[in-house]
Design a protein around this nucleic acid. Structure first.
Lengths: 140, 140
DNA sequence: TTATAGATAAGATACTGTCTCATCTAATGG
DNA sequence: CCATTAGATGAGACAGTATCTTATCTATAA
């Protein structure tokens, strides 16, 4: 097993613990991300939901994506100016290889930050992003 | 001297070599980026141009940004879903610390990719992004 | 000076994402 | 089980970034 990401049950618990309601839509949304190690967009999620929830509002998609992100259920990154989301990996710090075609991710167990802090002692480091892009074995 | 980035003269030569015209607007746009080691947005550039070029079209801004980028005059990155541009650094491969407040950049002379290729031999690696975010000495 | 390839302005258009507000519903306590 | 209500949703307007189309303009070279 490569990953140890959040699962549907933990996610629904987080909702409950924070006073948010457990709706069928939310369960399906979380399932959608739980299934795969893959970054997906709001549009991907909308297309997944539409057949089962006729007339679902785009705003419901965005509101829940943000809620899930703020609760630590999802993590996100910008790819080509569009926000992409995936189930949060909840163990040790790591980075991702991201397939440009299907969004599949693979963990990279190496972070260069340790060696760099000394170069930046007059700066205030808040965050960093290290991502590798290309094509996964299935897409290449 | 920390950087060895492209300068205005080289940029204008690139335009000429590729059959593009040398206009006052383009010279000012390139000057705008040449002055600083800093990522700026299309809107930043538009605001810089407007006082001197009343009624300048936003499309002129975008078209020239893309032209400059395709000619290798500018490099770009997505920050908060918005494209940011800076003068291209034309020497050895490196990454940047980016100030979240003013866009100032500082070169990071360490790239982790060498050690990672072996982890990805069944993947096709095309590109990577390594950026550090925080506040520069002037902004922190 | 003229011809023309490239540049520009203007405004329409597309796309991602957010806001407001009225309505609806899951969860809770009685 | 029902009533209450905080939270959830749908609808559509709206905002911001970016692109496209078309007519007009201009830098450049012959």
């Amino acid at each position: 097993m490569d990953t140890n990401k959040m699962n549907t049950k933990q996610a629904l618990n987080l909702l409950k613990q924070n006073g948010y309601k457990y709706t069928g839509k939310r369960e399906d949304m979380i399932h959608f991300f739980d299934k795969e190690n893959r970054y997906r967009t709001a549009k991907d999620l909308l297309h997944h939901m539409e057949p089962n929830y006729k007339g679902i509002s785009v705003d419901t998609i965005y509101r829940n994506l943000h809620l899930f992100h703020s609760l630590g259920i999802l993590e996100s990154t910008d790819l080509n100016g569009e926000k992409h989301f995936r189930m949060k990996c909840d163990h040790h710090h790591h980075h991702h290889f991201i397939c440009k075609n299907c969004g599949e991710t693979k963990e990279i167990h190496h972070c260069p930050m340790d060696k760099i802090v000394q170069e930046l002692d007059s700066y205030e480091v808040e965050d960093h992003k290290f991502e590798i892009y290309g094509f996964c074995p299935a897409c290449k």
